[in-house]
């Protein structure tokens, strides 16, 4: 074919595949999730989808997903929050201490814990936008600071959390019982935390795509100077997204503690932070800013949770699953960045 002036169409198989992936980002990660589920179902002789295994996977999906969706919002603005793992430990610890020490009802002290998360986000945001410290560094700092605080309160000891109904039922109930069919409502939702995460992710998808705040969040990450010139308050947008990240990390911690009736200072930590970021990345959000998907973060969380639990279920060492997770993150990131680059070259 003779060469023409204009934008070249994708010509290699790899580029054509990228076009399809970018058009159906959520769908393509959903396919990956499905393939993984089938693989583990076959590999475990039917244990993956018919045992309580899935309820564990969904519980983890809920935990990663709630933090991942907040990371997605931040990553769209071009920032990141690495302190979520400490907030996840600190907020419920404070909740339980308030409840035991001062007799504050669990529901009320949970609100206090989440407000603490919001405050942590506010501090992260202000340090990042006012003092122009890259958020990668700001939040590494606050990560260690908060981790230090939570382990020093009781010398790293976990404390037993009080059980108060209906709070525990609403936020930490395992709905799935061995007599339930897997395809029943309870079988598919398993733990209430998953339902909360599902609700929040859908809400954030709406916020991102259908509100002024979402529009300005995308504008901030896509072209920060242009966004400022046209009147978007980019600093505020970033700070608000840091506050969302703090709130969601705290909420995830509160829910986790409610489930296990225990507040562990080491429940979160760096590993949880990185798993949540992995979920966001595998879900199709690059760190370059300007684009990302909320629904993808939940699918990514499911993939991470499945890799974590599925391999162990099949008898592999827990450490082996990290090899797969690591590979998945690198591959997902290569795809995300390539798709972004193709878009920049106007070929998608």
């Amino acid at each position: 074919m003779p060469r023409r002036v204009g934008i070249a169409l994708p010509d290699t198989a790899f580029e054509r595949a990228l076009v399809i992936l970018s058009r159906y980002r959520e769908a393509s990660i959903a396919v990956v999730a499905l393939v993984l589920a089938i693989y583990f179902q076959v590999g475990s002789n039917g244990a993956f989808l018919s045992s309580q295994e899935l309820s564990v996977v969904l519980r983890d999906t809920g935990r990663f997903g709630l933090i991942a969706v907040a990371e997605v919002m931040l990553m769209i603005t071009g920032e990141i929050d690495l302190s979520v793992g400490s907030t996840f430990s600190l907020a419920p610890y404070v909740m339980v201490l308030m409840s035991i020490g001062w007799g504050v009802p669990l529901a009320l002290s949970a609100v206090a814990g989440i407000l603490l998360g919001v405050l942590i986000g506010l501090v992260n945001g202000i340090i990042t936008v006012r003092f122009r410290v890259p958020s990668l560094i700001t939040t590494v700092g606050t990560f260690f600071l908060l981790q230090g605080v939570v382990v020093s309160i009781y010398n790293s000891q976990p404390i037993v959390a009080p059980v108060q109904e209906p709070f525990n039922e609403i936020f930490g109930e395992n709905l799935y019982s061995p007599t339930d069919s897997l395809w029943s409502w309870h079988g598919l939702t398993a733990f209430t935390p998953f339902l909360w995460t599902l609700l929040v992710v859908l809400a954030m998808a709406l916020v991102l795509n259908r509100t002024t705040f979402g529009l300005h969040t995308i504008a901030t990450g896509s072209n920060i100077v242009g966004a400022r010139e046209i009147g978007v308050r980019t600093d505020r947008i970033k700070v608000y997204n840091f506050m969302i990240a703090g709130a969601f990390a705290a909420a995830a911690g509160v829910i986790n503690t409610t489930q296990f009736a225990s507040a562990d200072p080491l429940a979160g930590g760096p590993f949880l932070t990185l798993q949540a970021i992995a979920a966001a990345v595998i879900g199709g959000t690059s760190l370059l800013g300007g684009s990302g998907t909320a629904i993808g973060s939940l699918l990514g969380a499911f993939v991470v949770a499945t890799l974590n639990n599925g391999l162990v279920m099949m008898g592999a060492q827990a450490t082996v699953s990290d090899i797969y997770l690591g590979t998945a993150i690198v591959l997902a990131m290569i795809l995300n960045v390539q798709v972004d680059r193709m878009r920049a070259r106007r070929r998608v």
């Binding site: 995308i218 504008a219 990450g221 896509s222 072209n223 100077v225 242009g226 010139e229 300007g290």
Partner: peptide
């Protein structure tokens, strides 16, 4: 209203 030299358009929107 100002049209800046860089146009202040948001590519992702």
């Amino acid at each position: 209203e100002t049209v800046y030299q860089d146009l202040a358009l948001i590519n992702d929107l």
